[in-house]
Write a protein that binds this DNA or RNA. Structure first.
Lengths: 182, 182
DNA sequence: TATTTAAGTCAAGATGGCTGACATAAATCG
DNA sequence: CGATTTATGTCAGCCATCTTGACTTAAATA
């Protein structure tokens, strides 16, 4: 029943043999896990997708992407961060960070200062321009959150905050709580 | 106070002139928006980051990425979807979808059937193998959600579901509600 | 002085998006 | 019927973001 159409063909037998039984077509929708959990999984996916959409559009004006957003966000929230600390929060390699950081610095959104105690460190600060862009990026997300909370009864803010923190892996939870508390 | 170190230099004066005032370094942390909203924004970021981490590791075993995950997810949840419907949900172009879909088909995780009413359509179904992978990918996410809910009082599940739906853009909300309901 | 650490860079590769152009087969319109 | 539109698939080229590995510089430290 499998079909192929269009241009040229490709190898169908690449990898280790698969039992024919495994290739049987399944017509039933998945409902192994409880509907509750599935709903949560999918709604988190869609919520996050829309949550980052407006910032993405603003960033595109400077030909920036989500990587620039993350850097700008944490540098604004924690001015004076060292590069190592930033890498640790973002969980990327310094080679991945380099292009985004370079561009943010070259375009005047972020500035570096030599560390006072440790002169090897390059402490990261937003410029006024960087702070303004941060505010512009936060505005739609903040508006979205406010609107979402307004659709719920009072006191539910605390529930949502606790839930999101509980979704974070246990070993990161204290760290995230601390980062998002002040 | 700006510093550069390492290899070669680069152009610093690319784009339209920037007022010197805009380049002033800001040392104060951002606190323009309410702490509440900021907390929600950041916790959603960290929650999502950890939420996708375990599936990513499982997918890497087949050299698959998050794009494969999304395809596999929706095909499993809505077997018999046309390619056009899938593109619409994922909000990507067919050229972007093509490689992931091709690999999933070639490796026997997804099968296509010719549409009965419209024979141009290629309806997408998981194979048994594809269903099994989907279950493996859902397991850690489902576990994470269950654990998160267990840390909250009864009845908060509904609150969280409503909140996540409210974060979705208004024009998509009915669609998402419908997609995540059954 | 020798080693380690913080940061920056270069190179090569994988992935996952994009646009534009074109091919094929089936449906539909006139 | 023939012409057009639609659903799908492909190719080519581009760009962004991430990876690993190797190397440099400057500063701290043993």
């Amino acid at each position: 029943m499998s079909v192929r159409r269009g241009g040229s063909a490709r190898s169908e037998t690449d990898a280790p043999e698969i039992l024919p039984e495994q290739l049987e077509v399944v017509h039933e929708p998945l409902d192994a896990f409880s509907v509750d959990e599935m709903q949560l999984i999918e709604r988190l996916f869609f919520a996050y997708r829309d949550f980052v959409h407006e910032p993405d559009e603003i960033l595109a004006r400077d030909r920036f992407g989500r990587s620039h957003h993350r850097v700008l966000h944490f540098v604004n929230r924690h001015p004076g961060m060292s590069v190592a600390e930033l890498l640790d929060i973002l969980r990327i390699t310094k080679q991945s960070l380099a292009p985004a950081l370079r561009q943010l610095i070259d375009k005047g959104y972020i500035a570096q200062e030599v560390g006072k105690e440790d002169r090897r460190q390059r402490l990261l600060y937003p410029t006024r321009r960087g702070r303004e862009l941060m505010l512009a990026l936060c505005e739609p997300q903040s508006r979205r959150m406010t609107a979402a909370l307004e659709m719920l009864p009072d006191g539910d803010r605390e529930t949502v905050l606790k839930f999101l923190l509980a979704v974070v892996s246990e070993q990161d939870r204290d760290r995230v709580r601390h980062l998002t508390d002040h």
